[in-house]
Amino acid sequence: MQHRHSSIRIVDNLAEITRHHDRQVLEKSLLKTLNELFPAQSLRLFRVRRHDLVHDISLLAFCVNDVISSSDQHPKLNFETADELTAALTKAIDKEDIVSYRQSGNDGWNVIYPAFDSHGEIFASLVHHCHELPSVNDQRLVHGILRVYANYLALIDKSQRDKLTGLYNRETLDEQITKILVNQSSELNKLMASPNDSRRRRYAIKHWLGVVDIDKFKVINDTYGHLYGDEVIILVARLMTSGVIRDDDLIYRFGGEEFVVLLKAANEVDAMQAFERIRKVVANHSFPQLGQVTVSVGFVEVSAQLSPTDVIGQADEALYAAKNEGRNQVQNYHHLVAAGKVMEPKKMVSSNVELF
């Protein structure tokens, strides 16, 4: 596959990629650009995570027949990952280099490009399925575009991080909650259109937001000073990111000694267990000079609220209940409402306002 690409066209495509700040939109823009420069039967972008010696590979975005989408938009769409593709992906990751092979049945070529983060670790892999094997120069160009994508992604990630803890900052939280509410509204409309699809309702992804607050933090600050208080915040942040929740769940520094956790769980029981793991890992850790430090947690399902402020407010009410009940515990907003300990605000009845 021999293509001559003008410098202007390449620059225009790179400018289009770096125009976006949302990661999902950025991934789709990357595939759109590559598909315009190198028309393909399909393009697939996989996320790569290393767990010890095992590679965890999951689909992020794909382009088939010029249709580009993300895996979140089609969570049930699974490409058939044949053994030869799995082996080739693993080979490209292990070799840290481009790998190409002809598919079984002479159905064109697969070219696999690893993408490296700022630490030199492979964080993604692109699979380019095409009729003819790209030239060496074309492969170098694709690899170069992936480097631009990786570098820009690192800049976005840095701008969204809290400087003290390295967690996501508060500015990115509202956007993420809004995205969940909008997606849920879209899913709800689909379910209402197909009321008999009980299986889809049963396996729908549920999102939960928890506010995590360090107990008696003012006493720590007053007794040991603000520098030590910052060390406690950093330690709690590290404990929460030490594997007690899934890699794709999100943790934010909300301000001061407060954190927000956004996670996925099938039901309230699973969500409670996830937040309990966070509480226990902090309570069981021995902090220098202090010994035990505890956290209180209030959580709520992100579902049908009007705004991110409402979601956080409900989780906050559950947090206050946890504090009032003696701290070092997890409280569920919906259980508190059912028990009459929290009054659920009356919903405004409006017939003409379409929120999403």
Rank of each mutant, 00 (worst) to 15 (best):
Asn284His: 13
Ile57Ala: 07
Ser100Val: 01
Pro114Leu: 04
Cys63Phe: 02
Lys91Trp: 03
Ser286Tyr: 10
Glu16Asp: 13
His74Trp: 05
His3Asp: 08
Val330Ile: 13
Ser6Phe: 14
Leu31Asp: 04
Leu250Val: 14
Tyr252Cys: 01
Thr172Gln: 11
Lys163Ser: 09
Ala266Val: 05
Leu239Lys: 12
Val293Arg: 08
Ala154Phe: 09
Val311Leu: 05
Ala266Glu: 15
Thr241Tyr: 01
Ala237Lys: 09
Tyr252His: 08
Tyr228Gln: 10
Lys91Met: 08
His119Trp: 06
Ala204Val: 11
Leu37Tyr: 01
Asp83Leu: 13
Lys91Ser: 11
Gln305Lys: 05
Asp94Asn: 14
Asn221Phe: 06
Leu227Thr: 00
His207Pro: 07
Ala304Ser: 10
Phe259Gln: 10
Val54Ser: 08
Asp197Leu: 05
Asp174Leu: 06
Gln305Arg: 02
Arg253Thr: 04
Arg170Asp: 09
Ala87Asn: 11
Val269Ile: 14
Ile220Val: 15
Ile156Trp: 05
Pro114Gln: 04
Asp52Lys: 13
Pro308Asp: 04
Ile312Trp: 03
Asp316Cys: 08
Asp66Lys: 12
Gly108Gln: 03
Gln73Val: 10
Leu263Ser: 10
Leu336Asn: 06
Leu239Phe: 08
Lys346Ile: 11
Leu45Asp: 00
Ala265Met: 00
Leu141Phe: 02
Asp138Arg: 07
Phe116Ile: 14
Lys163Trp: 01
Val282Cys: 06
Gly243Arg: 08
Asn110Ala: 11
Asn221Ile: 05
Asp249Gln: 10
Glu171Ile: 05
Tyr228Arg: 12
Gly340Lys: 06
Leu239Tyr: 05
Phe62Trp: 06
Leu133Ala: 02
Val282Ser: 03
